[in-house]
Design a binder for these strands. Structure first.
Lengths: 262, 262
DNA sequence: AATTAAATTTCGCCT
DNA sequence: AGGCGAAGTTTAATT
């Protein structure tokens, strides 16, 4: 049974009615849904022009603006949220809706010739969003169950800072060798191998212990195996989904927990 | 004066009415706009769960689906267009709208507990979209006016294939040295420098002429200047906007024109 | 099909 | 505030 939430809908309004609806929505911090025939200009980091056509425009209270065409997952024009100022006015029978932000300076302006729909909404949304099987999940899984990597592996640290960046996982194997681990959640490219090589190169100068490099990923790109061999590095198959399953069996949530008392 | 295009709007419909509206829209290849209280599941390359809240859902005829929260430029869940099969059904008073695709196998399912708006649209949109001041614009500008790079520079080719990829612009300077040019439309990182270094490395073996490397960008990231110096490479400031202005003054449109008769 | 690089990338984290 | 790397990145181009 619907709660009949306040829902302001104008269908095929005049430009002037639409203007009022848009201004009210923006003024009251509502989410705005527009459908109509429009042109769009973007000026800022680049510059773009979209000729006349019917599109969906979403204006959110956080300052973000999206222009969607009838096809495509991505918006054709947009404005990321943030310090954005909206503005709506009628000029020569055209409704101009403009979003302007500084840092970087850029603006999206939508010129509506006709409006089919103006809908202002108050979206109540406090639902949690959770994502599994990300690269961080793989990292957490390895820390929780080091034998996923190899038998006898013991993590020493994670996100260790070295010159070129951060080592995903750093530890030692059952023979006491240091192990540098680079994780990729999908097919690893040669770039990943070079990244690992750079880490090892940077770390070798800081220790005289034997050091191994291990690339962890669900699969390898073409020639990557050969590149690994050339550079004397190793590979361990690991599937991100398996990692998230491993984690859901355990109750570990935060990365830091693994090292809190070391 | 509005054309009064066919616009199907249901406000606060029952779940069953909404189901009918959704099915009809999908069946007739319309764009669908939904607003309502819902949960969302994603399973595929990763896995995600979004708890109950009010959101905007867009379903396009090309198979793409977007779930937007009240804040944020990016959709919280989505499905890229392509070979997507949609499905809508009511189960236990909940309207399930599901998008499924293979390659990769993944699905987004939206569970509506309440619906505020169902709107099906026929968007007529053939408007051209044009973007200026892209990296390609910078490339074209350099080819059209080589002195943007440096006085006396003469382009030999563009998009020249070498082992690791493609050299943006390749030419010779006023002293007859070969010049390899790497273009970035925004702040250049160390990665860009390494990319340039790899190209030069690959090309040096093919010629015994002196060879210079030039990174072209509107600015440099931290330490990038030092990296350039270490590797003996040069930098030339160039602003993408200036490039697009240069191009709009000239009438050159196609890259190939510059070399058609060489 | 696989690889590579760009994107008005955005986003988050860390210095 | 700037830099770096990841993303369910997407997209386009080229092998």
């Amino acid at each position: 049974m619907p709660h009949l939430k306040p829902l302001n809908v104008l269908t095929n309004p005049s430009i002037e009615e639409a203007e009022k609806g848009v201004r009210d929505a923006i003024l009251h911090g509502k989410t705005l849904l527009l459908v109509g025939l429009c042109r769009v200009h973007y000026v800022g980091r680049a510059r773009s022009k979209l000729e006349s056509g019917e599109r969906i425009v979403i204006v959110k209270a956080d300052g973000s603006l999206l222009v969607h065409r009838s096809v495509g997952y991505e918006p054709v024009n947009w404005m990321p949220g943030g310090d954005v100022v909206f503005n709506a006015k009628v000029k020569d029978g055209i409704l101009e809706v403009r979003a302007l932000r500084k840092k970087p300076v850029e603006s999206v302006t939508v010129f509506f010739e006709e409006i089919q729909l103006v809908c202002s909404l108050s979206l109540t949304d406090s639902g949690d969003f959770s994502l599994y099987a990300s690269e961080e999940d793989m990292q957490r899984a390895i820390l929780a169950r080091p034998d996923l990597l190899e038998e006898g592996f013991r993590p020493i640290s994670y996100e260790k800072k070295v010159e070129p960046g951060f080592v995903d996982v750093y530890g030692e194997d059952k023979d006491g060798n240091l192990v540098v681990v680079e994780i990729k959640r999908k097919t690893a490219s040669k770039e990943a191998v070079f990244q690992l090589a750079r880490y090892i190169d940077a770390l070798k100068s800081k220790s005289n212990r034997k050091m191994r490099g291990l690339l962890v990923a669900p699969s390898l790109g073409k020639d990557v195996q050969r590149t690994l061999e050339t550079l004397g590095l190793g590979y361990r198959y690991l599937d991100p989904k398996k990692c998230s399953e491993t984690l859901s069996r355990r109750k570990t949530v935060k990365l830091a927990e693994f090292f809190e008392e070391k």
